[in-house]
Design a protein around this nucleic acid. Structure first.
Length: 557
RNA sequence: UGAGCUAUGGUGUAAUGGUAGCACAACAGAUUCUGAAUCUGUUUGUCUUGGUUCGAGUCCAGGUAGCUCAACCA
């Protein structure tokens, strides 16, 4: 086999394993717990597991890590399937559940008991932690630690039979109560939980702990490299201990990498759930959420997310990725492919005084200047148009090159117009801007060769399509919402302007937009139809990401 | 003297004992019928102190800082 060059430390381990003959294949798995929706951090793990295996000719399983029936739901299983598939990965027929292995895992637990490596402990709640000791002090042995094997086995079988209440007793591995690694101080292996499981129903009233179920599940599936995040590093000795205690061969190897942190983004599943439950957002798929479903609804493509995951790299150092990189990835793709359209989010009417009423002119504009193959389209231009309120200033600052009194601006694809007068109400608000146009500038060039610095988009008043447009910003105002000052809580940093709704005017073709379409509203950003509102038949557009704005940046200074 | 892990520009990531590179961001200019895109250029880096070596970001030792671990969660 021709072994590819490694491009991160995990691949280095794999290449080494392949070269030394420790492994002759690569098999990974993506093991989500179905207790919430997948987010961009999971996307990193999904891409890592699937592409790493693929690179070395191996396979990746989808395995639901469902060992805690009280937190897990079928709704989450469905969403996880959908999201992984949407991201572009295929687990073929290898869809598994840890709960598929409950019988085997149970048998392994009995074996552990038979080998004298596990016992039933009757310590309750606080007593368990008391006996465990602290980070700096050794724990002490449970009074039940040296029960005879037969008694342990009997008790364990009675636990399984439902003879005891929750918390009455639990199965523990017999390792070392003085171990410097707290995870090795006789960790729990099985606990009683009288809860219905989303797949096994009421068959079981005892459930294995993650630390026990995970290595066994990996082993059953012939996983070679079990990739997980850094917080499981201290669990690795336990992972290895169980496999060794059970005398298993061809064992998987756990490798940890640093999870993704993104600026201005909350990645904790628990807090994401709170946002949903407290109705801070419209649900798991709110376009402001970092969930896969949120990104999808926002207009991100699977390929842009994969590109992002590829660019951020893999390492063991804690890091905080600048969200601008995500923005860059989707802009780069959409710039090359998105249909251009003209839209006005905050309209003000312009009347062209020297244009006859009722006359219209057919203007031709490119669908995508980055890709001429996308062709041109025709739009009607007339006496009354909308332009962006921001594209006119009565008293413009230096270097403002859009419309202003006596100033000339180009209407995209149409004509040069010059502002001659402004109509205002009593409060001084602008009602209408009156302009004259230069008939010789049709198409946007003047035969006299005079230059017009500014070009703005426009929408014909009688042909305009009205729609709601939603502009999104960070949900949090803190760069790291996971790290709030001591006297504050994270909800103090919610951004009140994370969603702004506009009543916009769009060019006529936007009335026929479909869910699959991606648009660049010229000078405003990239947009797509909102999938939820579309179900109600409403025309609502989401801004996926704005265009870079060097003018805005200049103004801010 | 609890254990483990980590440390490269503002951010992320390469360099596997031999010229510190790439991307994003930032800045400047060119260009532009999108103040976008594109093009050109610029700024900024090996946590620290020793040691090994002809040569150290890389190896060794000591510091420092950050992260993780005391659920019958995953």
């Amino acid at each position: 086999m021709n072994i590819p060059e490694p491009s991160n430390f995990i691949q280095e381990i794999i290449v080494d394993d392949l070269k030394t003959g420790k492994r002759n294949a690569v098999h990974t798995r993506f093991p989500p717990e179905p207790n919430g929706y997948l987010h961009i951090g999971h996307a990193k793990s999904i891409c890592l597991n699937f592409s790493t295996a693929a690179k070395f000719g191996g396979k990746t399983n989808l395995r639901f890590d469902d060992t805690n029936p009280s937190k897990e739901e079928i709704e989450y299983v469905d969403s996880i399937r959908e999201d992984v598939r949407w991201l572009g990965f295929d687990w073929e027929e290898r869809e598994y559940f840890a709960s598929d292995y409950y019988d085997q895992i149970y048998d392994f637990a009995e074996q552990l008991i038979l080998k004298g490596k596990a016992y039933i402990c009757e310590l309750k709640g606080d007593a368990v932690s008391e006996y465990r000791g602290t980070l700096t002090e050794a724990g002490k042995p449970s009074p039940w630690r040296d029960r005879p094997v037969s008694e342990n086995l009997d008790l364990f079988r009675r636990m399984k039979a439902g003879e005891f209440e929750e918390g009455a007793c639990f199965l523990r591995a017999k390792i070392d109560m003085a171990h410097p690694n707290m995870n090795m101080r006789d960790p729990a292996v099985y606990r009683i939980k009288k809860a219905s499981h989303h797949r096994t129903g009421d068959k079981w009233c005892i459930y294995p702990m993650y630390d026990f179920a995970h290595p066994i599940s990996d082993w059953i599936e012939n996983i070679t490299h079990s990739i997980c995040t850094l917080e499981f590093e201290a669990h690795r000795p336990l992972y290895d201990w169980f496999l060794q205690a059970l005398e298993l061969k061809n064992c998987p190897q756990q490798i940890e990498f640093a999870r993704l942190n993104l600026t201005y983004t909350m990645m904790s599943k628990r807090r994401l759930l709170e946002l949903v439950q407290n109705k801070v957002v419209m649900g798991w798929s709110d376009p402001r959420m970092p969930t896969i479903s949120g990104l999808r609804r926002r207009g991100y493509s699977p390929s842009s997310i994969r590109e992002f995951c590829d660019r951020i790299g893999i390492s063991k150092a804690d890091s905080m990725v600048d969200i601008n990189l995500l923005y860059f990835c989707i802009r780069e793709e959409l710039n090359a492919s998105a249909q251009r359209a003209m839209a006005v989010l905050n309209p003000v009417k312009v009347v062209i005084d020297n244009w006859e009423e009722g006359r219209f002119d057919e203007i031709e504009v490119e669908n995508n200047p980055e890709n001429p193959a996308q062709g041109n389209r025709k739009i009607l231009f007339g006496r009354e148009i909308y332009i962006e309120r921001d594209d006119f200033m009565e008293n413009p600052p230096k270097k403002y090159f859009r419309l202003h009194p006596d100033g000339e601006v180009r209407l995209k694809g149409a004509y040069f117009i010059k502002c001659v007068r402004v109509d205002k109400d009593d409060q001084g608000n602008i009602l209408e801007i009156h302009c004259t146009y230069d008939p010789a500038s049709r198409g946007g060039e003047s035969p006299d060769g005079r230059k017009v610095k500014g070009t703005i988009q426009w929408v014909s008043v009688p042909h305009a399509v009205s729609a709601e447009v939603r502009l999104f910003d960070h949900l949090f105002t803190l760069e790291n919402p996971a790290d709030v000052p001591e006297d504050k809580v994270w909800s103090d940093y919610l951004n009140p302007n994370s969603m702004i709704k506009c009543e916009a005017k769009l060019e006529p073709m936007m009335g026929k937009a479909t869910l699959a379409d991606r648009y660049q509203f010229m000078r405003l950003g990239y947009f797509c139809l909102d999938s939820e509102e579309n179900k109600q038949g409403k025309l609502v557009f989401n801004r996926t990401v704005e265009l870079k704005d060097s003018w805005g940046k200049m103004q801010a200074k």
